[in-house]
Amino acid sequence: MTKSPIITPQAAIRVRGLSKFFGPIDEGAIARTGPKFGTARDPLSGSIVAAWDVNFDVAAGEALGIVGESGSGKSTVLRCIAGDQPSSAGSVHLMCHDEGRTNVLDLSPAARRKLRIDQLSVVYQDPAEGLSLGVTAGGNIADPLTAAGWRNFEAIRVRARDLLDRTEVPLDRMDDIVRNFSGGMRQRVQIARALANNPPIVLLDEPTTGLDASIASGVLDLIRGLLEELDLAVVVVSHDFAVIEMLTQRCIVMQHGRVVEDALTDQLLEDPQHPYSQKLVTAARS
């Protein structure tokens, strides 16, 4: 292949052939599932092809969206990358880990968990997944810091205060337990915790779904500002095109476990190519 005259930034995360099955899968099952058949479930074996052959790169300072209806496989992809679920096939390379030489899907569960300390963070739709609700806001942030080797109590307090300030959580709530926080506030604490050790890669799974519209837009503003300032490589899963439009430059569209379109975000919104993308965009715009 000839070298492109346009220099594009190097990928911070590279995903190739990522797949996730539930139940035994053979080639026939792949051929009998997907958008053409309107299902991710193989009618013969009953196995599920939750995600098949997902590929993308994301560079630092860039955000990629994964869109699709619930059940399309978009959150599965995120959870496989995060290590919350074992994947069935494919590779994920992180530039920050062994200079991208290791397929992190091959690492031991313990090694995968270590990546979550300071290389790859996840912000979940449900703050209960990313936070310990019975612990204070400050304690939740101290957690990844101590995991990364921070020992000085005062330094941890200063860092936690800084992060809460940055995510616009009132500092006088720092020593309140998170269970007593509102939904929007919990989400801000979860973002603060995710950023504690300056990970270069952040995965967001429906970060504003379930929040009131006015609260959601504040959280969205916050995320957008952080993306620009911290030069993060971000993957955002959302069924909400307003979120995708605000945060991302590029997208992939998933249906029944398959990627049916990858596109520039403005192109997806203005000139969607795949029938399913057209349906999604029309539904979102009407």
Partner: peptide
């Protein structure tokens, strides 16, 4: 740089860079 590209054939990341 003086080189020519066909905008219709660029990859999405190339368009972002352009």
């Amino acid at each position: 740089s003086g080189e020519w590209v066909d905008i219709g054939k660029l990859t999405d990341p190339e368009v972002v860079a352009l």
